[in-house]
Design a binder for these strands. Structure first.
Lengths: 154, 154
DNA sequence: ATCCATGCAAACCGTTTGCAAGCAA
DNA sequence: TTGCTTGCAAACGGTTTGCATGGAT
């Protein structure tokens, strides 16, 4: 692992530790193992693929613990959950990654590609909605849908 | 039913009929009954509440048919499906209703209110994303999340 | 008469829960 | 030692599927 990533991962570990301590959760080895595996994954993943990945790497872990730990990681903002609609929830690491939104490319109902983008106008809209509806917004989810073109990967 | 609504419903029926004919689907009484019930519902609903509503109204209908028919209604744009994340999919009639996005108000994980808004900047973002990522976008879903305040209904 | 659509129930699948055993504090 | 965590398996809940019956064409 290259030095900058190593540093970033150390930060991530520290954030997790702080969170666990602050909330009276125990620092179990399983939780740190899961954190490390999650941060080795590029892009989106679901619980099942994380489970299989950890099995392949010879870790003894249960799906229940994965669900529990992912919940903790979401609460301390180290992981983001996406509900794209096709089957299971998708997750991705989110530390120091620019927050972004998604374009789901589908071919007859199947997700064949997920692209990302970032647009500052969302923040403007958010500010206006807060003012207009008198609410304090804590987050958002914007997804565009698009049909696969012929030169799209199958 | 007042005249304008009656007219609107006639249009809706016509759109459904056209769609069924154009796609070789049969015009069954069940499908029109479900369409009528759906268009009598204000706001969001899920399949279970639609099922119970129709049972209450003494219709013999199965959940399977509701799922099938809702799919048809979505395909001809008479109904919209939302995946807000809490349990089941939410639907709402969408004929000639201004398309809008949502603010989900939650109190400790429970959805306590859903507000709507509409902002033209989404269209601008969409156009830019289409150009930037070289895709043709067919739709979008934008949801803001917010925590319930004390003067929010429980 | 054909064969798509329906109602019913079972299957499916992602997620949650219950519980005994394990281990962090 | 205490009681939160874990792994396992069963339960759960929304959705899908299989199948015999029914009805639109």
């Amino acid at each position: 692992m290259k030095t900058p990533n190593k540093e970033a991962y150390d930060n991530v570990q520290q954030i997790f530790t702080d969170y666990l301590l602050a909330h009276g959760h125990r620092k179990t080895p399983e939780r740190y193992t899961i954190l490390r595996e999650v941060y080795n994954i590029e892009g989106h993943f679901d619980i099942e693929s994380l489970y299989m990945r950890m099995k392949r790497n010879k870790y003894r872990v249960s799906r229940a613990t994965l669900y529990n730990t992912i919940e903790l990681l979401i609460e301390c903002k180290l992981v983001t959950r996406h509900l794209f609609g096709n089957g299971s929830a998708q997750f991705e690491k989110s530390y120091k990654l620019r927050q972004h939104d998604h374009v789901i490319v589908e071919r007859d109902g199947e997700v064949v590609n997920i692209m990302e983008f970032c647009d500052p106008r969302i923040q403007e809209i958010q500010a206006d909605v807060e003012r207009l509806l008198q609410v304090k917004i804590t987050g958002h989810s914007l997804t565009f849908f698009s049909k696969a073109t012929d030169n799209e990967q199958p």
